[in-house]
Design a binder for these strands. Structure first.
Length: 126
DNA sequence: CTTGTGATTGTTCCC
DNA sequence: GGGAACAATCACAAG
């Protein structure tokens, strides 16, 4: 059932999809889930194996079944990527909800969540 | 021309 | 804790 839900419990999100280009400039886009990261690559491969199939909907289905077929180890790189994107997005959303957080007054330093250490050489794609 | 939909799963958000 | 909307993508439909 794709009855995802007609009415959401929350209230703020009542913003219905007005126009695809009418999104708040301050509101950052959500980070692609591991599935999407996997699908980005999966799509390309799928197109080579199925040049006739172009509909993303079909690829989505194929990818969905394949995705479940993957093991945690294979999803690991995708999850790791999504995890990083999540951290980035969390900061953006924080600024979106609290653009001036901490800039009020005498706020010294309480948040040490600066995880800027990108020492993970694994990226290595440099 | 323009816009939405359909389909996949995951993630994220706010109350 | 929960529930609800949205993230990419791309062909196709309808007005």
């Amino acid at each position: 059932m794709k009855a995802k839900a007609g009415s959401r419990a929350g209230g703020s999100r009542l913003a219905v999809k007005k126009s695809k280009a009418d999104k708040d400039p301050n509101k950052p886009k959500r980070p692609p889930s591991a599935f999407f990261v996997f699908m980005d690559t999966f799509r390309k491969e799928y197109r080579e194996k199925h040049p006739d199939v172009k509909l993303a909907s079909v690829i989505g289905k194929a990818g969905g079944e394949k995705w479940k077929s993957l093991s945690d180890a294979e999803k690991a790189p995708y999850n790791a990527k999504a995890e990083k994107l999540k951290a980035e997005y969390t900061k953006k959303i924080n600024a979106y909800n609290n653009p001036q957080a901490g800039e009020a007054s005498g706020d010294s330093d309480k948040s040490k969540s600066e995880v800027n250490d990108e020492d993970d050489g694994s990226e290595g794609d440099a």
